[in-house]
Design a protein around this nucleic acid. Structure first.
Ligand SMILES: [Mn+2]
Ligand SMILES: [Mn+2]
Length: 566
DNA sequence: GAACGTCCTG
DNA sequence: TTCACACCGTCAT
DNA sequence: GACGGTGTGTCTCAGGACGTTCAA
């Protein structure tokens, strides 16, 4: 008997029903107190449906739009579609779409269909008719036979509104803690496509504590989806978007980060619109970087050098990250010049440099440089992927340690507090223990234990496709333990900000040792965080250099005809 | 009619 | 659709 | 060289069915 290994594993017949029930039962069991009467009713109504109707409802909920055409619904496992649809409409879980919302569902019809129905509808639809005038155009204009455009469309197909979708969204938000994951997570897991670490989930400390908090999340997501539109519409739209954001984040660090991040985006856009007063007001409300940096710049550009300098002093006294700290130092110098105050500028680190000449090719300058160094050893273009992966593998069990309240569903790529400043402090003992083990020479053992045991599982620091045994093995062989400690220490200080800016290449010369090389072609120079990494390297004798590559990239637009002609 | 994007599926 | 990085133009020095 | 805006490469689970757009 031949078994096709590529054939996805057959899941249960009604896999999506089982998945939905796991999700909705969890939410109902743990969050019943947070649900509105309508949401509770949705749960019970759906549960009480006969199986075919239940299956259909979940199918419809899994689809993208809030509106659907009946002709686009076809599920062999559901016997009578008409019966199932009747159940759903009778219970109010779905309803036929109304002309007044035509702007939301008219695009379910193809251009051809709309064009064929009536030229006047076509004119109304394509010719810039607003959502307000569209329903009127649909129902008031009449053709020679007395039919309105709506009549003609209705004859073409029935459109349903999945009215229980808003309640389903609440269930998704409560279960996943966000709105970008859904039931496909279950499927991908069961098909073996995406694997999550089997961490311990803690249902006694769930992220949502009150309905107000839940509503604030929804409010945030509604605003976030409006941002692009507000940018196009201008300052007034941005201001009302700001006002529409929740002002209470209910002691939820995740929600606060998201809201304040959006504050920053709104204020930044107001800066571009030269609305500096409002930008400053909003920046002042934000705790999240780079709010203080932007605020200092805004104050300075308005001539308030004193205020700007005060902000810089505040940053220096309590920086949120290395970027802020460096900014405050450099900007203080500029401000002090304006204010005629003495201030000693900090000299910036200059890494050792070496220059190489490369033959022109189609490769990127990084790959071309890697080839150059590969002549005298092994060289990999790794950027951030190698060192972050080694950190993620080495500290795998620390990252997924069962800290209270950080794991609440089986589909998390990281603990809830992974990007928080206190991620380290809450795991201090585990981290110190692991660092001690590294000093005892156990790095290779721990690294490869996790490399094999956790292969392909999701880890916020590990991109599996960019690492392999050979590379990891070379790295742990050539980079001494005390260097790893220095690298890990710096990354762990601020994982979110210190997981990038690492040099392009890692070079293992035939003569032994290793070197981290940042390649710069003509017209490029070190970014700030790249320089900070190199400064850290130099303070701890980690071999590094800036490679100035004299290189001309050849476009590979030489098409076949051109080649034949030439 | 190819190329591309979106949606749906397990 | 995300992120990190390179690249490019502009401005002040 | 500082700064801001923009482009690029790399990820997405993979594959099929559509609809839309655009170049020949
Ligand atoms: Mn790079
Ligand atoms: Mn580089």
């Amino acid at each position: 008997m031949v078994v096709d290994q590529n054939q996805p594993e057959i899941t249960a017949r009604h896999y999506y029903l089982e998945n939905f029930q796991v999700l909705s039962d969890f939410v109902f069991q743990h969050y019943e107190g947070l649900l509105s009467p309508q949401e509770t009713h949705f749960y019970h109504t759906l549960a009480a449906l006969p199986e075919p109707a239940k299956l259909l409802c979940i199918r419809l909920l899994m689809r993208r739009g809030e509106y659907l055409r009946e002709s686009r619904i076809s599920y062999p496992e559901i016997g009578s579609l008409a019966d199932a649809l009747a159940h759903l409409t009778n219970t109010g879980l779905i309803e036929t779409a109304h002309a007044r919302n035509a702007a939301d569902w008219l695009n379910l019809f193809t251009k051809d269909e709309l064009h064929n129905i009536t030229p006047m509808l076509n004119a109304a639809y394509a010719g810039g008719s607003t959502p307000d005038t569209l329903p009127e155009a649909l129902t008031h204009h009449v053709d020679l036979l007395g039919d309105t455009p709506l009549d003609l469309i209705t004859r073409l197909d029935t459109v349903y509104k999945i009215s229980c979708k808003e309640h389903y969204q609440v269930f998704l938000l409560l279960f996943f803690g966000n709105l970008h994951q859904d039931l496909t997570e279950f499927v991908l897991r069961d098909l073996g496509i995406r694997g999550y670490e089997n961490y311990l989930t803690d249902t006694t400390a769930l992220p949502f504590q009150s309905r107000a908090q839940l509503l604030a999340y929804q409010q945030y997501y509604a605003c976030e989806s409006c941002f692009d539109e507000a940018v196009e519409q201008g300052p007034d739209a941005l201001r009302s978007l700001f006002k529409a954001l929740p002002d209470n984040t209910h002691n939820d660090p995740v929600l606060q980060r998201r809201v304040h991040q959006l504050y920053n985006h709104i204020a930044r856009q107001l800066e571009r619109e030269a609305e500096l007063t409002d930008a400053a007001i909003i920046y002042q409300l934000s705790v999240y970087p780079p709010a203080r940096e932007r605020l200092a710049r805004v104050e300075a550009s308005r001539g308030n050098y004193r205020a700007a300098l005060d902000i810089c002093h505040q940053i220096t006294a309590g920086p949120n990250n290395s970027e802020e700290l460096e900014f405050a130092g450099q900007f203080s110098v500029k401000l002090c010049k304006k204010l005629d105050v003495d201030f000693s500028p900090a000299s910036r680190y200059r890494p050792p440099e070496l220059a190489i000449d490369l033959p022109a090719s189609q490769l990127s300058v990084e790959y071309a440089s890697a080839l150059h160094f590969a002549r005298t050893g092994h060289c990999y273009y790794v950027e951030n992927s190698l060192l972050t992966a080694v950190l993620g593998l080495t500290f795998w069990d620390v990252i997924f340690a069962p800290v209270k309240g950080v794991f609440f569903n089986p589909f998390q790529r990281a603990p809830l507090d992974f990007n928080d400043a206190d991620f380290i402090t809450r795991r201090r003992a585990l981290i110190d223990n692991r660092l001690l083990e590294i000093t005892q020479g156990k790095l290779r053992e721990i690294l490869f234990k996790h490399f094999y045991q956790k292969s392909r599982l999701v880890n916020p620091l590990v991109q599996w496709q960019s690492i392999n045994y050979t590379l990891l093995s070379l790295a742990v062989e050539k980079i001494p333990a005390d260097h790893w400690l220095v690298i890990f220490d710096y990354m762990l200080r601020d994982i979110k900000n210190h997981r990038s800016g690492l040099p392009d290449l890692i070079y293992f010369p035939n003569c032994g040792g290793y070197q981290l090389l940042e390649v710069k072609g003509p017209g490029d120079s070190l970014q700030k965080h790249q320089r900070r990494w190199m400064k850290h390297f130099s303070e701890h004798q980690i071999p590094h250099a800036l490679v100035n590559a004299n290189y001309q990239r050849v476009e590979h637009t030489a098409e076949l005809p051109a080649l034949l002609a030439g």
